[in-house]
Design a protein around this nucleic acid. Structure first.
Lengths: 236, 236
DNA sequence: GCCGATCGAATTGTATACGATCATTTGCAC
DNA sequence: GTGCAAATGATCGTATACAATTCGATCGGC
């Protein structure tokens, strides 16, 4: 069902265990079951997935390359804790590439793609009205999947992988700096973008996308949060 | 001197050996000392760098993530052999991101940056007029460095890393499908772009960049080259 | 009582070992 | 001589073992 799994499966089903572990951990990070800063010990990861440290380590290194975990020499791997500056760069990158992806996707979009995107929106809306942790997590992922699906439709595997990285890291940023309890994306904005595409208003769709990204970013409080483990924690 | 080394060094000098090996191999690929399809056995790589297979493997996996080598399950790692379709995607991605990077870079560019870029062009021109393998290799790298330097000036580390991947993979594509003996980039076009930036003609600079990329791509012969190890090789 | 040094447990860095898979070649039948 | 099958060699996948480093705790000094 999810695109990543489908792609790798179609490839050659040549998934080494390390990649499965990597995907599992990434999913956990994106769904915010793992918080930024959480230590990911090689032993613990290995035990959790019943493999040796070798594979756990490989998975962590791969995640490090995606920017989702940071490995510090001789100290271990941690779920990434993006700095405000990194956060800004992530969203700057999204502003830079998503309009272009949207244009490409719109050019190649079939009626089937559109109805599939609409169904994604429906699902997203359904999850929004639901209560509970699992619904919340599914909603987070669904809102990201909208952007990923566009990248997939654009037909450029390289941009697709890049967007996967950006969406995942965005989730981390939102987990860290997001303010409003309402989760990641303004849901209606996704619908507006689709509508604009359907009406062949490509420029408007791109503007909407930029506004959408700006809207997400505006909900962040990107101030340096020093350790906060000092007196400030009690001065309130 | 080169940006990658500087960045990692400034970071924390926390370079594990695997990363050094990865960088060495990447450099060899970009400079086309390693041809597409060359087998990179874990044993050979390990022996070459006097490390165990563990580290060699880690380096190869990292390169695989960058798309520079392809690892085939139970068969080994090979210098990537991008298909024509992949090649098109690489250049499509560059057309998509480089104008945006250029805009960002122009907005932040200092006089020092400009003179540094000009110096890069000078060096590039000098190498072009020189003869010999080493000059050719240096020229290839220098022409890529122009694009990388722009990404660096843009101040977005994420886009910078992405461009590093795109430039490296472009080098592979050119090695495979390039026709004209004259190496990768039309040198003068780099100068034109700088000139446009200096004159605050940002739109023109972006157009020039797009033309430049198109120009590189136009020099490719992106036809499927089936194995070619059959009778076709002698039918000529 | 508080601060710094030393020791120990835990964790990572790297190497080696063993089982599994794939490519090649040898040998046999036809 | 040709084609298929089994054995052989090389290479990869994964686990385990040992060395190096870090973090925390205990102990001694002030």
């Amino acid at each position: 069902m999810k695109s990543a799994a489908k792609a790798t499966q179609a490839e050659d089903s040549t998934d080494t265990s390390a990649q499965l572990i990597r995907d599992s951990i990434r999913e956990a990070i994106v769904e915010r079951r793992l918080s930024p800063g959480t230590k990911l010990s090689e032993n613990d990861v290995g035990n959790l997935f019943n493999v040796s440290r070798t594979l756990a380590r490989a998975a962590l290194q791969a995640l490090s390359y995606e920017g989702l975990v940071s490995v510090e020499k001789n100290r271990g791997a941690f779920v990434a804790y993006p700095s405000p500056d990194e956060a800004r760069q992530i969203f700057a990158a999204r502003r830079l590439v998503e309009p272009g992806i949207l244009r490409e996707a719109a050019a190649r979009m079939t009626p089937g793609d559109i109805s599939q995107l609409k169904q994604l929106l429906l699902e997203e809306g359904r999850l929004m009205s639901e209560r509970g942790q699992t619904a919340r997590r599914a909603e987070i992922k669904a809102s990201g999947d909208f952007h990923l699906r566009l990248a997939e439709i654009s037909g450029n595997a390289i941009m697709q992988r890049f967007m996967e990285e950006l969406v995942a890291r965005s989730s981390l940023v939102i987990a860290l700096y997001g303010q409003s309890t309402v989760s990641s994306c303004g849901h209606s904005e996704h619908g507006d973008i689709i509508a604009a595409i359907e009406n062949d208003e490509l420029d408007r769709a791109c503007r909407l996308m930029l506004h959408h990204i700006a809207h997400i970013e505006a909900d962040l409080d990107l101030r340096e949060r020093k350790s906060l483990g000092l007196k400030e924690a009690f001065e309130l």
